[in-house]
Design a protein around this nucleic acid. Structure first.
Lengths: 255, 255
DNA sequence: CGTGAAGTTGAGTATGCTCAACGGTGGTGG
DNA sequence: CCACCACCGTTGAGCATACTCAACTTCACG
């Protein structure tokens, strides 16, 4: 239920990165060195087309707890996450918070056609992002139909994910929700090349609770349950071992 | 918690409607007479382009409780609803059901890029639909970029709706959920030209419960609460008056 | 009318919430 | 460098909202 705060968003102009830049190649063509290009929408683009994309793009370093935008702000930009984790959330007037999703490296936000953002986006950990002016971006979409194809496919994937989340929020028990969440994080990590059994939880218990529609206490108790039943084990803080993936899947699906 | 049943889907071939057809014009160009064209994705198309769409399209009359497809079926077709209401739902192994959304006239389903459907679609009332083979439809998408634009915009709208539903499922009370639902139905009705204060509830209490993540009993009690507080009034069965729209909005938003 | 399904209401229960205390950890300043 | 403090996470006890089970009413349809 962390309330909104207003940190400044550090932006770097196209092709102009901060002083602490190591490789000039990155500067000339950040996208070509991008570690998550194969995951992102940009995978659809050739080297030449990437240049066009870069010309309308800024990169941003966002410190933990800084927000990209707030619910209700004019929706001027779309973002693609390169590193780190971003949470999307809405608040009810009395402060109840629902996290609508986490953005992991390769994820994209800003599809909605509405003129204002319908939710707040805030970095959970330090994050790096690519930022696009939506008007320019949609012009590019028309120039490169395969980019639009990819975006449409992504929209479909996100809808699928949203529906899975509805099932979780509407019909699953606390334990089932937590298992589902751990598997989700595991899959996102795997997508970025990490082992599915080893999970980095960058978000707080409170974030997890707001994502799962629970309280921190219930999340904590569910963690304890899963630990006692041998499904998970805590490594260092932030690090978790999923000892029994099939078992977790069974729990997550309600068996 | 209505379980899956397998009714046959009545299909009509392109341009070939059932014997009981009144106006031949409808037969030649069903889309031009379509009552929800302005709502549908097809609004993006000119008369000529509509012809192309019609050539890959079948229309279907679906009786109440017939399913369009089941979760897990190969996802061969996409659908657009012309009249009636369709529910999309998934089941957990033990029978818990979550309705992921209702399709009203003008709504579209089948965006996902997956090769099998992730949910079941079933007519809540009698419904008429347009059916497209997805492979052919996506070819058309490439031919008419403005159609793809419109589909992308629709995907964005659906994502927005999905996120609102997450907030509802994760953080709202029973009464708040029901108020949100009534307002949703009211808006869909308004979109089709009906008064926002007069609502037709074609779905059963059980459907509403499965949509809201509640039980039928709790839905029923919440109806009673809203009736006793003067926010709604029952007309004939299926018909409901929303006596206090601002009040309902306040409840729905958690005030 | 009679029958069965759908909806409503009631009583008791359970899952997850609230409130509260406690332990660990990391950051800050003396 | 260490002590202190604040924050996060965990655990416990009691409570509330929504669930379960059951009876009863209403409605649609023969």
């Amino acid at each position: 239920m962390t309330n909104a705060r207003s940190n400044i968003l550090q932006l770097e102009e196209p092709g102009v990165l901060s002083e602490a830049v190591a490789q000039p190649t990155v500067m000339d063509s950040p996208c070509r060195a991008c570690p998550v290009r194969h995951l992102s929408i940009c995978a659809a683009l050739s080297a030449n087309e990437l240049k066009d994309l870069e010309s309308i793009m800024s990169t941003a370093e966002v410190p933990s707890k800084a927000s990209l935008f707030h619910e209700g702000d004019p929706a001027e930009y779309a973002y693609s996450v390169t590193t780190g984790v971003v949470k999307l959330y809405t608040l009810l007037p009395d402060g109840r918070c629902q996290i609508l999703g986490f953005l992991f490296p390769g994820d994209f936000v800003g599809l909605s056609a509405r003129s204002t953002y319908g939710f707040t986006a805030e970095a959970v950990s330090g994050a790096t992002l690519c930022r696009f002016q939506r008007s320019k971006f949609s012009a590019l979409l028309h120039r490169y139909p395969h980019l639009e194809d990819r975006l449409l496919a992504r929209a479909g994937d996100e809808l699928d994910a949203a529906r899975e989340q509805m099932l979780m929020l509407g019909r699953k028990t606390a334990k089932e929700r937590l298992a589902s969440f751990l598997l989700l994080v595991s899959e996102k990590g795997e997508r970025s090349g990490q082992s599915p059994q080893r999970v980095r939880l960058l978000m707080s218990r409170s974030d997890i609770a707001d994502f799962l529609g629970l309280t921190t206490e219930t999340v904590s108790r569910s963690f304890t349950q899963l630990r006692k039943s041998g499904h998970i084990a805590k490594q260092e803080s932030e690090r978790l071992d999923l000892l029994d993936l099939p078992g977790l899947r069974a729990i997550a699906q309600g068996f």
